[in-house]
Design a protein around this nucleic acid. Structure first.
Lengths: 187, 187
DNA sequence: TTATTTTAACTAATGGTATTAGTTTTTGCA
DNA sequence: TGCAAAAACTAATACCATTAGTTAAAATAA
């Protein structure tokens, strides 16, 4: 029994790979162990249990999503920033469908570190909406709306909810464009 | 071992109750059997397997959602109909959080009967948007957008994604209102 | 270098899950 | 009344996460 040298990082990476390739529900301790050529109990030397694996997966996903959006919108403002954020969000959900599921499955009770990382994403949206000169309250409402659009669209797309053979990116563009036009007339 | 007299209907009803009271992931054959005071294998006399239970749950949920929206928007047109649809959608997800999760977990591969029922919901939206005089293509984009807003908002609300202490209904109203304003300037 | 301690793998076992096979009992009908 | 079908059951299998206890390898101390 040679040492494999597992690290928490490898375990989460492996779990994320399984999620993206076989779906979020395929992520099990047994599957991770198989992938790493190790017996399931060995994982418990590095992780408290399956609950922690999911928690780390969520944290990893949110961090990665934030990073993508950060990079994509860097230096932009206004509509340009908003569309850049939307596109990078959608790209992330398409490249990492399984990981994304964990990203939106927030643990109960709330997790300080995950919340903090999630707030960074929200702050990107708040920044991008700044040029709209909304009241503080309306800005928060608008962020919720924008998040709803992004998550709702991604989720429906992944679940196969869009049956019609119609360019999906056009749909997202239209809803965001409409939303922004409406926002401009809000004050 | 007296006859219990299980019916497919009772099984699905029980499953839906468990979903709404304890969460969608609490729905198991074992839990359903416990609730019905029956041994798990007995369920297999009425149901092919857990996969079918989930499938029936999805169908039941979509039907129920459609019925609620149908009733709520009956006789209305334009914005009034749209807000009525949105409110009844949200009410459904709040009253049936567990069942709603199954409602959006469409089975792979596609299920003819579920698709058909889902199309009825979509048709309600298309009808409501008719007064906007959108091109056929834009109408479909708009429906996707509207569905994204509804599902995204509901999903984030359920997952506890809205941290700020801000009236959630106001948020939904604002995003829909903005979206509609934008739509009106689309042609 | 050798000895000791710690780390990380292991095996074995427990209790949960869905599911199948085979059995028994009840019910409904001829 | 008797028989066939339906619907419950028990028993067993194969997964799953997890815990306890064991062993071997690696890191550290002497």
């Amino acid at each position: 029994m040679p040492r494999v040298g597992l690290k928490l990082n490898q375990i989460i990476q492996t779990a994320a790979d399984i999620a993206d390739r076989q779906g979020a529900e395929a992520v099990t301790m047994a599957a991770i162990a198989r992938e790493l050529s190790v017996r399931p109990p060995s994982l418990f030397n590095h992780v408290k249990g399956f609950a922690q694996v999911k928690r780390e997966l969520t944290l990893y996903g949110v961090k990665k999503l934030h990073e993508s959006m950060q990079v994509a919108s860097n230096g932009m403002i206004g509509d340009e920033a908003i569309f850049a954020l939307a596109n990078s969000y959608l790209q992330f959900t398409r490249e990492h469908p399984g990981l994304y599921e964990f990203t939106i499955a927030l643990p109960q009770p709330r997790d300080e570190e995950i919340d903090q990382e999630g707030n960074k994403v929200i702050n990107l949206l708040i920044e991008a909406l700044r040029s709209y000169q909304l009241s503080e309250e309306n800005a928060l409402h608008a962020v919720r709306g924008f998040r709803s659009i992004l998550h709702g669209f991604s989720s429906l797309e992944q679940k196969g909810g869009f049956g019609m053979p119609l360019k999906k990116d056009d749909s997202l563009n239209l809803v965001i464009k409409s939303f922004l036009i409406g926002l401009k007339q809000m004050n």
